[in-house]
Write a protein that binds this DNA or RNA. Sequence first.
RNA 1: GCGGGCAUCGCCAAGCGGUUAAGGCCUCGGAUUGUGGUUCCGAUAUGCGUGGGUUCGAAUCCCACUGUCCGCCCCA
Length: 404
Amino acid sequence: MIKAQRGTKDILPSDILTWQEIENKARNLFQNANYKEIRTPIFESTDLFKRGVGDSTDIVNKEMYTFNVGGGDTSITLRPENTAGVVRSYIEHGMDKLPTPVKLWYFGPMFRYERPQAGRQRQFHQIGLELFGIPDASADAEVIILAAEFLKANGIGNLVVSLNSLGCPDCRNKYKEKIKAAIKPYLENLCDDCKVRFEKNPLRMLDCKNEDCKKIFEKEEIKKVINDDFICEDCKNHFEELKKYLDKVGIKYEIDKMLVRGLDYYTRTVFEIKSTALGAQSAVLGGGRYDGLVEMLGGKPTPAVGFALGAERLFSLIEKKEEDKLDYFVVSKFQDVAIKTVFELRQKGYSADFDMLGRKFAKQLERAGKVAKKAVIIGEDELEKGFYTVKNLESGVQEKVSSL
RNA sequence: GCGGGCAUCGCCAAGCGGUUAAGGCCUCGGAUUGUGGUUCCGAUAUGCGUGGGUUCGAAUCCCACUGUCCGCCCCA
């Protein structure tokens, strides 16, 4: 038997209403906020992700589905995330000529070759949005507010946003050097991963889960450097402004100096929303500002901010939507009459179905009782005298009507 | 890439070396040739993830593989 590939899942009819509900809520909320939906291709040039997501990230280094096509001279990759693709589209279609800001949202499958576990699949879905052209913290605030609103709309209450600022490239580089200087004496005691990170991407050391590394970062002298406000005046003001906006709207947040996201393109604001109900993969949603990405991918310098949300993780947190019963189930041994009646009911906008196997009366009614609110009964009497018997299947009350 | 648990019908699940592999749900048929959601009866795994092995005998023990779940890493 051929089975679904490892790390992929069928979304079955029993779950589809809940999925549709998630998508509907995103569509309503984001379109109300003047975001337009964009659908970009599932695969892109491998180069886009190498440059966009970053060569030093795990995503690019070991998790991409990459193929050589066209006789081996074209390398394509199944998108592991969608920001790079949306930015590519933004540049390619000259969206910088559109009124500022340009606000886009998306929903679709992403692909990462990882070991599946709770809350992690190889094909998974993300809902996200991107806002282009606004350097002011009001843009960061809007994006975070929409993220919180969206979760709230899905019944996730009491959420707290983890917030941090990574600074701009300038202050971040200075910060990196300071951290490296502080940690250097302990370099030998770090885990192997952190030794590599020390050179390639020192900030990601702070995310390390290794107990020995954690202990080192807990040391007073190092903690002081980490917690030191390294960011420049402009970045600091930007961050303060953002907090002010969030306070004004009443969004709860906590500053997490350790929050360092794993994609290279983030600048200044980064944020994450977690749930303890999810197990090890606790992040439901993550995002931040990426002021350098558009330029890095060949566009004009354009500030931007966005987030992405793991739809499967959200799905596991929310109450499942039950299927509604049909308005009518037509019960009759005359199949031609049944099919015509069902057709007419549907034309009037009712949901309706009938028995296609010519089962006997009791069985048809049994089915009706399971799937519908009302049964329309059409037998010899009804046919002859030209009326319908409508039975309310919840109350058992039955009445004769001349039309439906 | 590295640890640990688990794998019996569409779903849940008993079985723990010995003749025909419980049970429940769902599905299908009947009791009941026009009144269901209550009840009763019947049907549905020659097979227990796959391949080897141990044994007179294996779903039950051993090995390998595969899958899945949980964790590490990383991320949504």
